[in-house]
Design a protein around this nucleic acid. Structure first.
Lengths: 283, 283
DNA sequence: GTTCCGCATGAATCGATAG
DNA sequence: ACTATCGATTCATGCGGAA
């Protein structure tokens, strides 16, 4: 039986990443400190300096990632002085220049966003989930994240007429046709690039942990069992905890000792689950 | 009684906009042809040339807009050769340089997005609704777009406890605790910066303008009656039709004669409604 | 009149093939 | 090599006619 490794490294990602091998990571999923956020814990990076600060890190990520791997970056610029900061846009352009393919931008539509009221804007209920790749031939396991088909199917697909079965193309010239018979006995459909998860509300020590569902979804989508997951801004350990539970190897890097301790506790706790999990699978 | 003007101008926005006065428009809401799209009708603009093509237009928009006015730009980059185009990011940065404040990015989460399946990406179900302003003191009528409270909010608001209040107060100091009373005992809530409308697919004759609900929402949010609305890429006339129905003055510019005719027909038809509408209001 | 059901259509995207 | 065209895939919505 293959073993699963779960490593939590204390230190600055800018340094720790340099100690890792080339081309061995299948998925990087992370939520770095946003500019001018979390000043109390991370010190905060000024928006103007953010790109310059991030590029050496992404350079290392580019190096450790397999050609078939994927890099998911969760980030959102805040409003400052009535205006959205532009550093995330500049970061995307800079990452492209660094050699990354900007494959996709998923939207994380937060189910329960932060309440509040301002005269000039509404509550911010979404964040960017930027997908970058080294090559066009990356691994993607779409079937792993299929979702139940919409309610419309109940009414619409019960009875299929003969015309439905025979007609192929619509007349519009869009080249789009339909073959309704394909839809029989379908319960699940592929999702879109808008994902909807609730934010975590419980009082974790880490100030901005993303919900478990988020790394879980991307781990399902971009890795298979025993693949390697990396989170260079681990925080309280959500990513490696989920990765371990899902039977993936993982490495987390975190600069704050207190968070590392929290994360390690989680791992230990879930090690029991892991044993349970391991005993079920036969490899 | 004040009259409502609804003007539809045939021509190229780059030229027609120059003939308009300074500082008289309250809201510009438009959906220009996206790069490499609508080749059959608008010829298509190459992604590389898009920013250069758009800046003279936005310069005129900046001129005709009141200091209290708002510019809403609906756009989305397509995927090309496995990668998202970056010209929209470059456009946002260029508009900032031109003097615009990038106030907000709304997400249009499309209820019914285009179908399809590809090995490397999911269906694209969102578009950008970029908000730009001349000054920080723009008009915003938030009460006009309040929505019925959803089940999610019922659950969430009931759970807001003393710990929630104290935690949030201590963290951000944003005065959240004071504002929370606004949220209790209400049937209506303010929306967020994610809006959800279905695309229209009932009209055979015209390639789809955006759905009526979209300009309607922004007209409610950023204008009051008798304000001036401008759409420099009118298409089949949705924006001015909605503006007229809502008792706003409006100007639409469209380069394709056939679309101008369609738009004018809509306006004429709705003039009867307008008369009805006028007779009901007392000014 | 309601509800139910048939059906076209939509700012899509990729890979293969053709010029 | 690089662009242009074509075929294949697919989900939810609203309209209009039928029950």
């Amino acid at each position: 039986m293959e073993n699963i490794t779960t490593a939590i490294l204390l230190g600055d990602s800018r340094e720790v990443l340099k100690t890792l091998d080339n081309n061995f990571v299948d998925l990087v999923v992370t939520s770095p400190p946003y500019a001018d956020r979390r000043k109390n814990t991370y010190g905060g990076i000024a928006p103007k300096k953010y790109v310059k600060w991030f590029l050496p890190i992404s350079e290392q990520i580019l190096r450790v990632l397999k050609p078939t791997g994927t890099f998911i970056l969760n980030i959102k610029e805040k409003a400052n002085n009535g205006e959205r900061n532009a550093y995330v846009l500049e970061l995307i352009l800079a990452l492209r220049k660094q050699g990354w393919l900007w494959t996709e931008e998923f939207i994380w539509h937060k189910k329960n966003c932060y309440p509040g009221k301002w005269p000039n804007r509404f509550r911010d209920s979404w964040e960017r989930l930027l997908q970058f790749n080294k090559t066009k031939k990356f691994n993607m396991y779409q079937d792993a994240v299929m979702t139940p088909i919409g309610d419309w199917a109940n009414g619409r697909l019960k009875k299929i007429s003969e015309t439905d079965k025979t007609r192929d193309n619509s007349k519009s010239g869009s080249g789009f046709g339909k073959n309704i018979s394909n839809w029989l006995n379908r319960n699940m459909v592929y999702p879109t690039n808008v994902v909807r998860f609730a934010t975590v509300c419980n009082n974790k020590k880490h100030s901005a942990a993303f919900p478990e569902k988020l790394p879980e979804w991307f781990i399902k989508l971009f890795t298979k069992k025993y693949d390697m997951v990396l989170d260079p801004f681990l925080g309280s350990g959500t990513t490696v905890e989920v990765a371990q539970r899902m039977g993936r190897n993982s490495i987390g890097i975190e600069i704050i000792p207190e968070y590392v301790e929290t994360a390690k506790t989680k791992i230990k706790k879930s090690t029991e689950l892991d044993t349970l999990f391991s005993s079920k699978i036969k490899v």
